[in-house]
Design a protein around this nucleic acid. Sequence first.
DNA 1: ACCTGAACACCGTTCAAGT
DNA 2: ACCTGAACACCGTTCAAGT
Lengths: 191, 191
Amino acid sequence: MSDDAEQLRADARENRNRILEVAREAFTRRPEASLNSIAKAAGVGAGTLYRHFPSREALLAGVYRKEIEELAALAPALVLQHPPMKALGLWFERFTEASGIKHGVGETLHAAVSEQDMRDTFGILKEAVGRLLFACEQAGKIGPGIPPEDVLVLLSSVLRIAPTAEGRQQARRIQDLIVRGITAGEATVQR
Amino acid sequence: MSDDAEQLRADARENRNRILEVAREAFTRRPEASLNSIAKAAGVGAGTLYRHFPSREALLAGVYRKEIEELAALAPALVLQHPPMKALGLWFERFTEASGIKHGVGETLHAAVSEQDMRDTFGILKEAVGRLLFACEQAGKIGPGIPPEDVLVLLSSVLRIAPTAEGRQQARRIQDLIVRGITAGEATVQR
DNA sequence: ACCTGAACACCGTTCAAGT
DNA sequence: ACCTGAACACCGTTCAAGT
């Protein structure tokens, strides 16, 4: 929602956007692309890139922020259009499919503890999942008090899976397992 | 089980072991420790390290192999000593606790598709989980045909969690969610 | 205010030369 | 048969000098 590029001088904002464009491309091609190479491709000095994005993670967050915000915004929309459990399932699928999310969320989750930028982005996703879970809860489909962040951590495991045909099947199976876990409520967990 | 250092000349085997020792220490302190610094600390040339471990991942696998093998060996032992579901729960806890596993398995899972070393190590863990699941299945506690690799991928998500007190609680909750997902058998997954 | 790009210390990796 | 360590190309990051 917030633009993050509001009070910038015209040339600075242009640079910022160009960096984000180039970075998105570069990361899609090769997730380990160097920041120097991105700066060069964007036609800016290395220092400029570092001024806008002080760390690799900050750049990642910048690149995928829009995508993540869209994904989050989808949650309430799905809740309106579908029965709660169906909405949850559909959102899970979207989460897995969103290609950019792969890198973006992975890093976000990983760094959510330390980096501030990340906490924000993570918070957006957490809220989205919370909304979905709440709807399911209201409908009596799941037990109360399942922390959205737990679901998100669990869901993040599918991001590691390679995007082969086989991998996609596995991702689907894993999504189902998560849904079942949520659905089961108080089950026979033994210690 | 296999030693991996069988047919080596005496000095080579010594070097190999020293590298593994130093690397374990270094990775524990700082997961991104450079390979050059490890070589130096181990008192060997960089080339020697690369001869033994051609990639960072190979070194990680070497470092954590023993630990992973022990964890895997624990599975059948637990099955003999406890009811199946309890054995599963205990093994999950051990998996989460094993500190070295954190780095080792994370990388292993990530690279399991490409690297051969990794496939082997991953296979060992997969077999262990398979054993646990089979016991639960035999006891009629879970549905049949849950792929061990799915459980492992899911379980790997807890490895990202920071080892704070709060984090440990979350890890525990997530383990429970996984167990519930497995237990639920065919549930109300909607599409 | 913002940008450039040379400079620094360090990285992974290779390979000729040694034993 | 194995090891050393200098060398290479590249990395992230900083910062004086420019506009």
